[in-house]
Computed example of a mutant assay.
Amino acid sequence: MEQDARVRLASSFGAAAPAYAEHRPDYAPEAVRWALAPAPGLRVLDLGAGTGKLTGTLVALGAEVNAVEPDPAMLAELRRAWPAVRALPGSAEAIPLPDASVDAVLAGNAMHWFDMAVAGPEIARVLVPGGILAGLWNVVDDRVDWIAGLERVSGSAAIGARDTFSSWRGATAGLHLPRTGVPARFGLPEQAEFPHGQRRTADSLVATLATRAGVLVMPGQQRRALLDRIRAFLASTPETADEFTLPLLTGVLRVRQL
């Protein structure tokens, strides 16, 4: 993805911050435990923290959390949801923390936006020796027939390569590496996924998909047409006629600092 397009997509969420906070899922606790399992301690940086979807799970697990988020509207939602958490403006490329101050850096649905040529050294700087970097993604289980149908109707703007069980590993395996030839600062990646789910209605699932970056940047008429197609598909699908559990998995990419 070209830099200008990546920046445009990454900066699209602030306009939908309240909807993001309301509709995006949290992360499977077992996935977060696995991400943290080799970390030297529980001082954790939630990087690109958004509205605090991962922050809440980290707090529940007893971590000492610093949350860093570049978008003011998203950061405001995070502070509203988790007022006791230290939440700071900043980015993966400019982390407002001291050297060797955290045991783990976790990023929920965010690592794909990082410029790792710059963010890699910054993450390594704030980690203690042997610290953990982990990216987490909530992905839909496209082994379920109606989810596969939803993927076809939605297109890549709403359900992209990182968003499905069948493709998330390939799409994220190298995201800890810079896009240029800078030497790697992290060891070999490990990946795992953990069952998850979210209670939804057809309307709330449409609202969830409307918070995807590819949908947020669409021209208004095109966005409305896409969401209308998704809504019509869900109305015609027996599994989504009433309240239902959206079949998700939380996928984790974990690496240790060299």
Rank of each mutant, 00 (worst) to 15 (best):
L205Q: 13
G214A: 10
T55H: 13
A37S: 06
I123F: 05
F114W: 04
A100K: 03
R86N: 14
D163I: 08
L177V: 14
D242I: 07
L97S: 11
H196L: 01
W113Y: 05
L36E: 00
W168C: 00
S236C: 13
L249H: 06
V252G: 03
P183L: 15
G48L: 06
T201P: 07
G214L: 14
P129Y: 03
P178S: 14
F13L: 03
A173N: 10
E64Y: 11
S167P: 11
G197W: 13
I159Q: 09
A110G: 08
Q198C: 07
S167Y: 09
A124Y: 06
A35Y: 00
F13S: 01
V140T: 05
W146D: 09
G108C: 12
V252T: 02
S236K: 11
W146Y: 12
W137G: 00
F186N: 02
A73F: 08
W146F: 13
Y20F: 00
L188K: 07
G52F: 07
D71R: 02
S204E: 08
L136C: 02
L36I: 01
D4S: 09
G197L: 09
L106S: 03
L234I: 09
R143N: 13
E69L: 10
A15L: 05
P98E: 12
L205Y: 14
M74L: 05
A31Y: 01
A241C: 14
Q257N: 08
A173P: 03
A134G: 01
A235G: 13
T57C: 13
T237M: 02
R185E: 10
G214F: 08
P96C: 08
A158P: 04
G120C: 05
R200I: 03
G135N: 00
D142G: 12
R231D: 12
A67C: 13
F114Y: 04
G149S: 14
G48A: 08
E2I: 13
R143C: 05
T240G: 07
A225H: 14
V85P: 11
R80S: 04
G170A: 11
A10H: 06
R8N: 11
L75H: 03
R6L: 05
A158E: 11
R24L: 01
L248M: 05
D4W: 07
L188M: 10
E190W: 02
T240W: 14
P98N: 07
E30T: 02
L234D: 13
S167V: 10
I159T: 08
V206E: 01
